[in-house]
Design a protein around this nucleic acid. Sequence first.
DNA 1: TGTAGTCCCTGTAGTAACTACAGGGTCAAG
DNA 2: CTTGACCCTGTAGTTACTACAGGGACTACA
Lengths: 137, 137
Amino acid sequence: MMAKEITRGQLAKRSGCNIETIRYYEKIGLMPEPPRSASGYRQYDENHERRLLFVMRGRELGFTIADLTSLLDLVDRRAVSCGEVEKLARSHLRSVQEKISDLKRMESTLSDTVRSCSGQDVPDCPLIDRLFDTEFN
Amino acid sequence: MMAKEITRGQLAKRSGCNIETIRYYEKIGLMPEPPRSASGYRQYDENHERRLLFVMRGRELGFTIADLTSLLDLVDRRAVSCGEVEKLARSHLRSVQEKISDLKRMESTLSDTVRSCSGQDVPDCPLIDRLFDTEFN
DNA sequence: TGTAGTCCCTGTAGTAACTACAGGGTCAAG
DNA sequence: CTTGACCCTGTAGTTACTACAGGGACTACA
């Protein structure tokens, strides 16, 4: 089989991942150390690209590096158990939902407060008042 | 007027702020350096407490330290302009709204995917497939 | 053959907003 | 006078990258 290896820069371009991030993922063990050319250049193949895309998609879904390390470890050990993965994913889902509700709380307070702003160049400001006001914990 | 100064630990307890965080806020200039007792203990008064609560409420609303530095700078210079504050707050509000929509996208993908999980101890898993699948960018 | 430009290599530092030590001094109670 | 709970300082660790600096390698072109 023909290898058609690519460099780190090429992998970065193809995947859309920052070139330094690829090296970072290697350093923390999320990406394997690829073989090197005679002059020390990293040589990546389709498996590396596949794995990098896995990581990138996982990150887009908000999984932590630790989560992805666990998931890829299951894959690497050929020990994927849908039940286990689901457990991790559901726990992540809950944390995403918590973040959403935190942010929604912020959003409603912010928009309520900003709505009552005059927008004029005056020293009296509802937001400043609200932040100083002892009534709001 | 009677001063009734309190220590850092007391301020921490009263405000609910972590004791180390108070020192951190001082280091980055968000809190002023308080006077010291003869033996070097920090002595805080109501103004410090008020300011700390301002910062804590601001952080709860998701403002960055830089935002709060700007806001408090306006206050300190007695140059609060509701228009200016509103501009900052609206820009922050937009970023909160963006975060919400990012998280909602994550949430829907995650819950869709997890819903199709068998939850059984089997190697075939929709989430893993989805992360590996080239169809999903 | 020389050289310019673009890659790649390494290690390290910086980002945000804290949080948690270690190693030492202080203060109040018994 | 000792014990325990405080306070002080500086520094390192956390998350997930990102951005250098200083040096080698490779390609194209004159």
